[in-house]
Structures are given as structure tokens and as C-alpha cells.
Design a protein around this nucleic acid. Structure first.
Lengths: 197, 197
DNA sequence: GTCTATAGCCCGATAGAC
DNA sequence: GTCTATCGGGCTATAGAC
């Protein structure tokens, strides 16, 4: 099986193993020996594929964030009405939890720690970008009359952000509850609260 | 100044320093040397006051949880109507974030890890107890007609739990926003969503 | 691409002096 | 109650054989 075959490359396979361990045990709690053990090799052999443990989590987070923010930008640029855009952003987020649960969990649990390391400065930028996406959607919603005019935009932004992403702690891909069903239920609670009466 | 004087005991002082570091840097990322440095002593000296690092976090979490669940039980036992009880539980939770932000943060960030250690088995019990508190309040609310009858109780429980506790990530005691103001705003969003129309 | 072997450092915890 | 000194071990990362 060549490296360009149907199977993912060894590099990606190792990144997948690392992502699972980082997500379930935390970045600092996961040692390179844990990763190597799970891959069936010795820890030193990992350094044939990656510079460092930091490089591994860097690659994992960067790819995921690029994909996610591409989706947010597409929603912002669409011609849907304000409420549809807000709903779409919520649905895209739950979809991300479904399809990339490890990456979301790592970001939720370890972004604070990693943000203190220089090479991960982009995490703070992404955080700010995320705030702009949601605040823009909320302001559009208020301006269009779809959302209550007395909303505290900043508090509501944090409410939505936290509510959506924290679901990664209990949502299990492939379980009885689909990510679209979760999004439906969350939107019902959320919008009957913030939608104009 | 004796150990029974107005000032807190050295033991409590050290626990406070440890709680702050555990909360802001994570339990495993915080070393006994960090704690000792912050206290102005050497790491070995900590073991005059505590058996181990585990004992420190154990004492921190146990005290806090005993206090918090005492408050929940009082609310459950009260004669207020269902909606008032639900509101009271939310307010008590935000008050806990205000008055014990480190303890809440440690529980939120490190309970999963600590739960795997035998002596912290009570954390899982508290988790189950918390679920029972909220589910009871939600069922009472539905039965009394205060809440929408079509609510998914389990999903709504997770929604409330996550929404309330995750605020510890951004709420700052002593800041412009008081914990009662945050509770007001959260209850407005939450109840206009789940209260019967 | 993996293994053998190890460097250099930090970890939690201990024993005994003061 | 704190310090001095240290043990045994786990950590990330490296060098070179195969």
C-alpha cells in the first residue's frame, strides 16, 4: 500500500490517534509514549513523523479551524435572512461537533493553555473572529426585527458560544441523538427565547 | 497571631493559593513547586500541612460541594412554586460562580480526570445528584404548567447545567457585571424559551 | 519507518536538621 | 513551620543502528 493509496497516510493515522488521546485525556496529560503505545510503535519513532508534540496538536487544530471558519464565512456572505443565517451557524457548529469531536474538545479544553505558547497565537485570533461572526449575526437579527431589540449582544454571544460548544462534553457521534436533532432542540430553546414575540 | 485568630489559618491560606493555581492552570499542570513558590516556601514544606497534592484538591472540592448541595436541597424542600424554585437554583449557581470561582473552575476542568481516581468517586455521585436536582425541578415545572409540556427534560437539563457552569470561564467577580445581573439575563433568555407561552 | 539507548530535566514525595 | 538535600521515576526529545 503506497502512501498515495486509498488508506490515509501513516502521518494522518498518527495524528488521528493523537487527537483522540489529546481530546479524552487532555493535551498535557497525554504523553508521547501514550501516543506511540496506541500506535504500536516506540515514542522515539514518532519523531520521524513530527518535530514535537506541539507540532502534532498545532496541525490538528489548524486544519480544523480553517475548515470551520470557511463555513462561517460562507454563511455570513449568503443572501439568506438574518434568522436563517443564525440557524445555519448553529447547525454548522453542531455538525462540527459531530464530525470533529476530538478537535472541538481539544480546543475547548486546552486552548487556554496553548494560547500562552507563541506559536498558538492564532487561537486567540480565531476566538476574536468567532466573536465577530456571532455578534454580526445577532446585530443583523436585531436590525431585521427577527430578534428582540433589548438583547445584550455580548452576553447573548457568550451564551450561544458556550451552549453550542460545551455539548462536545456529552454528545456522542453515532449515538441515538443525531447532531441535527440536537441542533433542532437547542434552536427551539434558544430562539423561543431570543426571537421577537 | 495565633492559629485561632481572625486571620485564616496557614492551612487555609495555602489551600486558597492552591485553588487559584489549580483553577487557572489546571490540576495536573500545577506542580507542588508552583504552589510552594506562590506561598513563598519550598515544596517540601507543603508536606507538613498536607499528605499530598491530591489531598489538597480533595479538600478544596469537598468543602465547596457540601455547601453548594446544601443550598440545592434547601430549594428543593421549599414551598415556593416550581418556577420560583427553578429560578432560585439558577441564582444559587451563579452565586457559587461569584463566590467560589476557583472551586467551580476546578470542578469543570478537572472532574473528568479526578473522577478516574478512587478517592474522588464522590464527584460522580455529586454529578448524579445534580442531575436529579435539575430534572426534579424541570418535571415539577412541567407538571405545574409553568414550563412547556413538550420539553425534552434530559436535553434541557444538560442545556441548563452547561449554560450555567460554563460562565465560570468568563465571569469575573468584582467586575462591572454582577452575578445577579448575569442570572437575570440568563433567566430571561432561558425562560422565554422554556416557559409556557 | 522503527528500534535501541540515553541525555537532561521536572515531577511528587520523603528524611532529618533547625 | 520551614529548609536542605535527595530519591526514584516519568517526561520530551535526540543520535545513530537496522
Amino acid at each position: 500500500m503506497s502512501t498515495t493509496g486509498a488508506a490515509v497516510s501513516r502521518r494522518e493515522e498518527l495524528l488521528g490517534i493523537a487527537a483522540r488521546l489529546f481530546a479524552t485525556q487532555g493535551y498535557t496529560n497525554t504523553t508521547v509514549r501514550h501516543i506511540a503505545d496506541a500506535a504500536g510503535i516506540l515514542s522515539g519513532s514518532l519523531y520521524h513523523h513530527f518535530d514535537s508534540k506541539e507540532s502534532m496538536v498545532d496541525e490538528i487544530l489548524r486544519e480544523f479551524q480553517n475548515e470551520l471558519f470557511g463555513q462561517y464565512e460562507a454563511i455570513l456572505a449568503s443572501t439568506d435572512d438574518a434568522r436563517a443565517k443564525l440557524e445555519a451557524a448553529v447547525r454548522v457548529s453542531f455538525e462540527a461537533i459531530d464530525q470533529h469531536p476530538f478537535e472541538v474538545a481539544i480546543f475547548q479544553n486546552d486552548a487556554d493553555y496553548l494560547g500562552g505558547v507563541e506559536r498558538f497565537g492564532y487561537l486567540a485570533e480565531r476566538n476574536q473572529q468567532s466573536r465577530e461572526v456571532w455578534v454580526t449575526l445577532l446585530r443583523e437579527g436585531i436590525a431585521s426585527g427577527a430578534l428582540r431589540p433589548d438583547l445584550d449582544v455580548d452576553l447573548t454571544y457568550r451564551f450561544i458560544r458556550d451552549t453550542v460548544w460545551v455539548a462536545v462534553k456529552w454528545y456522542r457521534p453515532g449515538g441515538k441523538l443525531t447532531h441535527t436533532a440536537v441542533a433542532d432542540q437547542y434552536l427551539t430553546i434558544l430562539l423561543d427565547g431570543i426571537a421577537h414575540a
